[in-house]
Nucleic acid binder design. Structure first.
Lengths: 197, 197
DNA sequence: GTCTATAGAGTGATAGAC
DNA sequence: GTCTATCACTCTATAGAC
């Protein structure tokens, strides 16, 4: 997608039509305003994302599933990269999307909290003090959501493996002995780099 | 500044001239291209930032000074907010700035690493495993740099206190007993919220 | 539905009078 | 130096032929 490569605001309806092999008039026939196109894309994004990150009350992943969620999230993030790179611009331009997305983000973080709490009950994570889980969920969300942007801003490639390592490293201090063993097995299973525990 | 409020790309040279009480022609007389204006602003930003975050080999802050650096950084960040909110756009538009900024970011993270290592030698931070410091420095950098953006993207106000809490919470698991005591004193000294250790 | 053509507004940048 | 006026371009969106 052209948006992902050049940034949302650098791709006009005309250029987009051109890369899609359509005439400008044809594209604006299906999406009368650019906003209509963006909303349609956003709805599609939200639909696919709901398959990757379950609703807050249904997220009960073991470590393996959490790792799988990270990978699935990254894959979808790459598909709708422009939403992650240019989100603030898009929210500024289309308040309708902004309002929806505020709620979406809240649910994403809530879902992460549920997953972490489930792993406390599994004896994988240790709840050292009040607020740990909320802090950890927010931290993981920030890392995952801004990963592609921080890489580009630094002039680096963004890689799934680096993102995974960074996320797991944040969970690391809160793992129980049992949890550390479980997580290390998962990371060694598929990653060439070993995370020293 | 108009850039900070409405976003870099939503403020044209004409609008900017208007808010400054200048004619469009006068503004483009002093800055022939918009790029010239951006580079001048970037140079000013870099100059002021060098006073807040010292060079990598000179950063030896105790916890109190680190907390002070966080506050000073936030203040400067608010002053040049558009660089932090719209950095990717600006880098895409002006590769000259991008190249300089890549190096700048590397130095910022290096400077953080130096500071953390110094606090290991002070017995404040515990280096649990190899890579901890690099990970922590990167994590703090991401949090600090993307804090205003993550707040806006979520529809929240961005607050210094929330950013401070989040950064210190990331350091928390790596503090020694002595370190925990020192940090808690600093945070209780000035913050209404208490960070439970 | 799909096309070409174009309206209408906004942009960065320049020209030339004072 | 500072101004007004304007060029050349790009953008979103529309009109109307086929």
């Amino acid at each position: 997608m052209a948006f992902n490569q050049h940034g949302y605001s650098n791709v006009s309806m005309q250029k987009l039509a051109e890369t899609m092999g359509l005439s400008p008039g044809n594209l604006t026939y299906h999406f009368r305003k650019k906003e209509d196109l963006m909303i349609a894309l956003y709805d599609l994004f939200r639909e696919e994302m709901s398959l990757v990150i379950p609703p807050p009350d249904q997220n009960t992943p073991d470590s393996f599933k959490l790792d799988y969620q990270i990978k699935s999230f990254y894959k979808l993030q790459q598909r709708f990269l422009f939403f992650y790179l240019d989100l603030l611009e898009i929210e500024r331009a289309y308040p309708v999307i902004a309002e929806q997305h505020y709620v979406h983000i809240q649910n994403q973080i809530k879902s992460l909290e549920t997953g972490l709490n489930y792993n406390i009950s599994r004896g994988i994570i240790e709840d050292k003090d009040s607020g740990t889980i909320q802090h950890l969920a927010q931290q993981i969300w920030i890392t995952a959501v801004f990963w592609p942007r921080q890489a580009r801003v630094r002039g680096l490639e963004d890689s799934l493996d680096d993102m995974r390592q960074t996320i797991w490293r944040q969970i690391l201090p809160y793992l129980t002995v049992k949890g550390a063993k479980e997580v290390n097995e998962i990371l060694n299973l598929e990653s060439t780099q070993q995370l020293t525990l």
